[in-house]
Design a protein around this nucleic acid. Sequence first.
DNA 1: TTGAAAGCGCTAACAA
DNA 2: TTGTTAGCGCTTTCAA
Lengths: 347, 347
Amino acid sequence: MSVTTVSLVMNDVESRISEETRRRVREAARAVGYAPSSVARGLRTQQTRTVGLISDQIATTPFAGDMLAGAQDAARENGHLVFLIDTGGDSTIEADAIRALTAQQVDALIYACMWHQVVPAPSGLPAGAVFLDCRPEGGGFRSVVPDDRAGGVAAVRELVAAGHRRIAYIDTDDNPIASTLRHEGYLEVLSEAGIPADPALHVHGETTARGGRAAYERLLDLPEEQRPTAVFCFNDRMAVGVYIAAHRRGLDIPRDLSIVGFDDQALIAAEQDPPLTTIALPHYDMGRWAMEVALGVRAEGDEDATHLMECPVIRRDSVGPPPAQVAKPNRRRASLTERLPEAVADQ
Amino acid sequence: MSVTTVSLVMNDVESRISEETRRRVREAARAVGYAPSSVARGLRTQQTRTVGLISDQIATTPFAGDMLAGAQDAARENGHLVFLIDTGGDSTIEADAIRALTAQQVDALIYACMWHQVVPAPSGLPAGAVFLDCRPEGGGFRSVVPDDRAGGVAAVRELVAAGHRRIAYIDTDDNPIASTLRHEGYLEVLSEAGIPADPALHVHGETTARGGRAAYERLLDLPEEQRPTAVFCFNDRMAVGVYIAAHRRGLDIPRDLSIVGFDDQALIAAEQDPPLTTIALPHYDMGRWAMEVALGVRAEGDEDATHLMECPVIRRDSVGPPPAQVAKPNRRRASLTERLPEAVADQ
DNA sequence: TTGAAAGCGCTAACAA
DNA sequence: TTGTTAGCGCTTTCAA
């Protein structure tokens, strides 16, 4: 039983080695509790079967744990371990992380952000790194981000399909890339449905419940006939603010107001009253995609392409037909059977 | 410039080596882009400066990212990298993880859970592993968990201090360890305040908004004079359900009802209307503690001790004095000035 | 079908 | 103050 023999059987190399010897080696290994050292193997083969995942904060926010899950699962399935480094956005830590990971001779590197943005590529980042939920300024790396535009389209289509024509977009300035894309989707659906875009229905706020609430309250100040019967919110947190404002005004969701959010944020969207219809961010799939291309198990033709990941709509109970149109200031509440034909006719 | 020389200067070893040589070595290294290989160093020294962190799901839930942050920060400060493995609770994956990490010769190992529980220690776990947010069945390892009992005490004291005497505990069966401990804290405060514990005020539900809502609605069915003026909820999600039920009944928080939650869950507690007073789970500190004792930089006397981490109270706006006591069935709403003296007298 | 030996890049004991 | 060398545990080529 030479080292060679042991190495061969531990690595399940076919060729030579008799069945008898294999058995003996395995048994001996079990008896001694022997397991090959990945470190020595890494030194010899120059492949460590490890991947570095550098992120600004994804590991430490309630937001995108799914990205990690996707990346991890893909790594595990391919026999890799992942080093996780959260930099908290500190570029010194980031540079250290890249150095440390390079010294560890990781086989691949993923650079992740908490939300869809364009970032300057950190210097020292090895070619072949992949960007997750962000794109490198000026390109040069592969990246995967959510298809926010299509998500916006899907969201507003839900509303149009339910019969709404006065649909507001509660936007934000806090996230330029995503908000612009979602807005484009919103405008596209309006235009394909022949609904003129009313600038008064495009309001902004910060991405918090408070921000969403303030924005919706501005909408409520509009004259009745201009007031939206539905709102598409930049995200679920803002949608929560809309719920609060609506409830305070005695509005029922979805009878008086329909809402679609974005993000499908855990513990938020599903727990509203009524549960919020929203667009999910495909964090798990993005994480998986990034890991698979980083590991080279998913062939991506272009060395410098951005992959757009679909955002599925999650239908819950915050969307219904618009309330019956009543010209009088004291609007009466129409029953469902009264409203339905109208809503359908509206489409 | 021999390898020794280079090694010595790269590792900042004092002794010998002239300033001149150091400079030359550094310059050459920079020129070639040389960095020592952690893998080779690991092989030679048998110390990899890496730590494994195995968890059931902490990395992939919106819950306890802070534990990761704490662990990571501590690891980084001590020059270590962390391997993160989420097992999703699958014990096969868990066993593989332990094997893989052992083969990687990690210097330390942390075993983490998503919430305070007692778990069977996985076999193969190296001695010296530390348990994070869980305790090993039968001991044998160091562990750190939140001090749920003291948290319960702090929560109920907030309510008693505000003048409440009919305080409900909305409990759950989903989390035996934490719920029992928090309940003990609740009973302790009641008894120290001379308030008899009313079994009717101890209700149960599942740990969701829906569960909290159902539980509180049962409380609302109680005869007026028995109804609680304040509730302590097992967690923030359940507290959200209480908000919903209360608002539906036209109850104002905190005028008609005071609430204290638990967890200080991001994006939930602070975004309620009004913001929820709650008890924070010290995830960051626990993560840090676990990493520091795993790395041996924090001396912990006992090899087999459980460290209890304090849960701070986060005061927001869901606690106020109880409404004025009115005997009549149609209770009138007392003004603040009317209520205040009574509340104080009540204490 | 098996074993001997070189060498991955480093550290540390020893020699100069 | 600097250099030489053995050896960490493995894989892989070559020889037996």
